[in-house]
């Protein structure tokens, strides 16, 4: 048994995923009905939220941690991005990295008391943290170039943050977002396939087994919180640059619950599930509105979907697609052998 054969299986999956993503990036802006205007802007936000879904998915799928505060951390990333932009005027890419760093620190620090928790206790604690972040953001508002630490002009005459130079219009910004999301997901994939990913999987299986294997479970939990918070911070930065302003109403604690439900339905155990989760979380409700169906119907869909995922499909839609793909591959392989 060689490590190469294990690695080549993983790499094959990555190459397929990236190829599909690149194909989507090239084709989607050209699609009629989606490739322009509100449809494309909605899809852009959905793709951004796939990063928040990925972070919740890694915590749950790899470590078994139910974290219901990801949308609150997106707000932290967005707030930091706007504040740093108005304070420093640095290029967006630098601001994005700094926002990821700040969100990593905030996400880790607020989660430290929850480090020894798991299951329902952790879920409730992180939900409370999301509630606290919601209140703070509602109180301070998002920076709009105003004075003071919070950087907010309460008269409403504040400015908006411009999009990055490489993504000025809707189509180019969609592609910009998609490239950033692909890069972050590939980095996450690399992390999951390497030493930290293996340690996280061991922790999910059981603390005792992980410690007996020589794993410092506390350090790896902190690393997971920092990494996933940073990823969520990137989502916040991309969201801030999308419209130039952010509204506290978009970052309610209940949004974090919805996001976690979409992660369960889409598949917490793969990064493909994260992309599907982002689409479910933001694109499907908007799509229903476009079709004249009440967007709140999504609560019913998510409720039923969560029950279905928990009872019959723990690997979610991504897992079912993977099973389908494996079945098709083996059937095709049989046909080739027969011929």
């Amino acid at each position: 048994m060689s490590p190469q054969s294990v690695a080549s299986n993983r790499t094959r999956g990555l190459i397929t995923g990236v190829a599909l993503a690149v194909l989507a990036v090239v084709l989607v802006p050209s699609l009629p009905g989606i490739g322009a205007g509100l449809g494309l802007r909605t899809l852009t936000v959905a793709v951004i939220y796939s990063l928040a879904a990925a972070s919740a998915g890694v915590l749950y799928g790899r470590l078994g941690l139910v974290s219901i505060m990801q949308v609150g951390l997106v707000a932290v990333g967005g707030w930091t991005t706007l504040r740093l932009h108005y304070a420093t005027g640095l290029p967006f890419e630098v601001v994005l990295l700094l926002a990821a760093l700040v969100t990593a620190v905030v996400g880790t620090v607020v989660s430290l008391p929850a480090l020894r928790l798991s299951g329902l206790s952790l879920a409730i604690t992180t939900l409370m943290i999301a509630g606290a972040l919601e209140v703070i953001v509602r109180y301070t508002g998002f920076p709009n170039g105003g004075p003071g630490f919070v950087g907010r002009d309460a008269t409403g005459s504040g400015s908006t943050m411009p999009r990055p130079s490489l993504g000025q219009d809707d189509q180019t910004y969609f592609r910009y977002v998609a490239v950033v999301v692909i890069v972050v997901l590939v980095l996450l994939w690399w992390l999951l396939a390497s030493r930290p990913g293996r340690a996280w999987a061991a922790i999910r299986q059981g603390d005792a087994g992980a410690m007996a294997s020589g794993i410092n479970t506390t350090a790896y939990r902190v690393l997971a919180l920092a990494v996933t918070s940073a990823v969520t911070g990137v989502a916040g930065a991309l969201l801030a640059a999308n419209s130039g302003v952010l509204d506290p109403v978009s970052f309610k604690a209940q949004q974090s619950v919805l996001l976690f439900a979409t992660v369960l339905i889409a598949g917490a155990f793969s990064l493909a599930g994260a992309v599907i989760g982002g689409l479910f979380f933001y694109w499907v409700p908007q799509l229903l509105n476009t079709w004249g169906v009440d967007g709140n119907l999504v609560f019913v869909i998510l409720g039923l979907g969560t029950v279905q995922a928990i009872t019959t499909a723990p690997h979610g839609i991504a897992g079912q697609l993977e099973n389908l793909s494996s079945a098709l591959r083996s059937r095709t392989g049989r046909r080739v052998e027969e011929s």
Partner: peptide
Amino acid sequence: QVIRALSAY
């Protein structure tokens, strides 16, 4: 305590 999500290797 074999980790289900990882290969035997």
